[in-house]
């Protein structure tokens, strides 16, 4: 029986069996749900297909953001002249924006770990696989790695903005993606730990302050930020940069920070940028439109 409570457990199992963390998580899922490994694999392939399509649709489809309170920027960013980012990182950012915009406009997405943070993992994994020429098998294993990390965060801390702020949504997504990147690059299991720890430390305490309570601002751009952070943390870990604090302890700290966080800063739209003068103006406009009888 595969059992793990912490990232340390997961790393120990991977080292004992000389395999990737993703393979341990794959086996765990089959056991805990009482289904075949093949069934679990095919289900993840289906989820990956939805992720890929959400990137494509987010860049291609013709849609507007709800209440027209914000514009779409994914395509504009992709085509715009860059002064600092290379072509690769520009694509990562554009893809994260695309999925998040598509999600805001009621597109079909795969929550990872939530709908509000669903842009990070597709953008990161798709771009990394394209660059490294990764096989689909390795990509799917990477998604298992990511989901194992997410499972630990969900059970030791939270993956809900209403419980622990955005650190639990975009933060968790970035940490999951960073760990998966280490495995896609054939890094060591310990490096997964460092990548997760570096990510969560960098984003610790991030509040959830959606303007007008909608999954638009700041959510969409934060997905792009989370995607970039995942690459930065993974690259650090892969070059041998270590986190002073182990990932499991960082996750515990994230949980206590989430509990200390004032309710106004946890998805209620009663603090942060939601209550700025502009934020309040937008909220009022949305409320007025929302209270009208349907046409």
């Amino acid at each position: 029986m595969v059992e793990f409570e912490t990232l340390k457990d997961l790393i120990k199992l991977a080292k004992e069996r000389k395999c990737k963390i993703g393979e341990i998580v794959w086996e765990y899922e089959a056991e805990v749900e009482g289904v075949s490994k093949e069934f679990v694999w095919n289900k993840m392939v289906k989820h990956w297909d939805v992720m890929k399509r959400s990137i494509e649709n987010g860049l291609k489809e013709n849609f507007e953001l709800p209440c027209k309170i914000a514009k779409r920027y994914a395509k504009k960013f992709l085509k715009g002249k860059k002064f600092f980012l290379d072509d690769f990182m520009s694509k990562v950012v554009a893809r994260a924006l695309a999925v998040s915009e598509y999600n805001s406009a009621m597109g079909l997405v795969c929550a990872a770990p939530t709908a509000g943070s669903s842009g990070v993992i597709p953008a990161v994994i798709y771009s990394a696989a394209e660059k490294l020429n990764t096989s689909e098998r390795e990509v799917i294993l990477g998604l298992f790695t990511a989901s194992g990390i997410g499972l630990i965060i969900a059970n030791k801390a939270s993956i809900a903005g209403s419980e622990a702020g955005c650190q639990a949504e975009v933060g968790a997504a970035a940490a999951m993606a960073a760990g998966a990147l280490v495995e896609l690059a054939n890094g060591k299991p310990e490096q997964v730990d460092h990548a997760v720890a570096i990510t969560l430390k960098s984003i610790m305490g991030l509040i959830c302050d959606p303007v007008a309570g909608l999954v638009i601002s700041p959510c969409i751009k934060r997905n792009a930020f989370g995607a970039v952070l995942a690459f930065l943390s993974a690259e650090m870990a892969l070059t041998g940069v270590e986190s002073l604090i182990p990932a499991d302890e960082v996750i515990e700290a994230m949980d206590s920070v989430g509990r200390l966080m004032h309710p106004d800063l946890k998805e209620t739209a009663r603090g942060g940028i939601a209550t700025t003068p502009t934020g309040e103006r937008i909220r009022e406009k949305v409320f007025k439109e929302g209270s009208l009888e349907p046409k």
């Binding site: 749900e33 805001s104 597109g107 997405v109 795969c110 929550a111 709908a115 989901s147 997410g150 419980e163």
Partner: peptide
């Protein structure tokens, strides 16, 4: 708090956006 058992509660569900609670 409910313990999450399946990884498909982490990567997943496949859903129409934008929000698991509001949609």
């Amino acid at each position: 708090m409910k313990r999450v058992e399946s990884i498909f509660e982490i990567i997943g569900p496949i859903m129409v956006g934008p929000s698991s609670s509001h949609t």
